[in-house]
Nucleic acid binder design. Sequence first.
RNA 1: CGGGACGUGGCGCAGCCUGGUAGCGCACUCGCUUUGGGAGCGAGGGGUCGCCAGUUCGAAUCUGGCCGUCCCGACCA
Length: 480
Amino acid sequence: MSTNALPTQSTDFPGWYGEVVRRADLAENSAVRGAMVIKPYGYAIWEAIQRALDHRIKATGHENFYFPLFVPASLLAQEGELVEGFAPEVAVVTEAGGKRLEEPLAVRPTSEALIWSTYARWVQSYRDLPLLYNQWANVVRWELRPRLFLRTSEFLWQEGHTAHETEAEAVAETLTILHDVYADTLENVLAIPVLRGRKSESERFPGAVETYTLEALMRDGKALQAATSHYLGQGFARTFDVHFTGRDGVEQHPYATSWGASTRLVGALVMAHGDDRGLRLPPLVAPQQVMIVPIYHETDQADVLHAAAAIRDELGAAGVRVRLDDRADYRPGFKFNEWELKGAPVRIELGSRDLAAGTVTVARRDTGEKHQIPLPRVGTEIGELLSDIQTSLFRVALHDQERRTLSNPDGYQEMIEYLREAGGFVAASWCGSGECEARVKDECSATIRCLPLVEQPERSNTCICCGREAAQSAVWAQAY
RNA sequence: CGGGACGUGGCGCAGCCUGGUAGCGCACUCGCUUUGGGAGCGAGGGGUCGCCAGUUCGAAUCUGGCCGUCCCGACCA
């Protein structure tokens, strides 16, 4: 643990991010380029995210299963769009058991091919549908520019793969996942407000008919795709020969969806809430919600530690994730800084002054405020404080996102300048042409993050780029 | 793959230009004193200077090649 101050967000956001990830003990680089070691503290955050997602995935009727890491390369190659989209980043095993393999094995970049080739055996009748399955897995994509959590060559995620009898049911599934699983987790657990929308054609998942996305704004004004849910139509069913006899006795192909969210969400958490002192974790995902720091002298050490342990036990019994930092080798000031860096939502300071007054000192990480509360009220007030911090982090982030969204800019030039300096989101009307999309990207490297599901109330009816008639609004931003 | 920078104890760096027995801060170990916002003093341990070759009496330092990392672009959860 270094004692130096962090780089500041305003002067060096990438440097700040890297230092926070490293010094808060979230993750570090490994011997393999682009592959990261997730350390216990970072993994605990991921586990909290996993729990939240898994709970919602199951609550919406899905079951977990597991498919293997390797996919015969020929199988992966069967789906034209998929292979085209992923070919550059697929890792392939050509040798195993000391011999060259007759058939190379791809390390999955995503599992549609393997799963759908298997679904062919699982589906015979409409009575076998729907298939509502999910897996927690690792996937490998050989990224050119890796970045801890945001883009690593191996990452952890969940990928859902469902098969449905009708198109309407599959589309409804895609949206259920988007809203009830992903957006609910992002906003109510991670406290990160999201824009919900469709992807433009150029940003769509390879092989998808429609890709739905959640876009979150980071504190440097850049957007992060937080989760995606794809309606895949019947393409994969056709490619992998999945068919069933329908209610009408006619042979037909099921409709597919797939959807995923990854360890990237840990990075989202860092960049959406972190400040110049480090991480600010929403209580619902914080490995430690309350840290108790005892402050004592030789003479009162036993009393202070005894009282601190009692508070720990009381809060623990009430279901709070609480820890007493009784390390003797570190002084209180060091612990304050360390737990602020690691984002613990609440700190309780307890010293002889507090004992004498019958209080504890409580500091909240999000605002930095400190105040005293009477010992008997600790149980109830800490619970309220944690839920207050949870909603407050969301409200602050939402306000920030609204403040940084430029809606209906006066002209194209204003939009480009705003995007160029990563001011945030720009919402404007778009004609739908790839040329306009490419032109913006060319001029300021910003992309269409989504075509929002909720239309802008005062939308202009001409395209911000070309002035032609515009059928929809789009949201642009620089993106990770 | 293009453009830039850099490889020296665990981490961050100086030394290189002008070759001569490898140094600083943090971290680590031991001791004492400390503890309400990153403790102080003292004593220690740890590095074939990215790799290979060359020049030289002698290379962290000069030369050539290779490897790797980071930052900026194109690709991307």
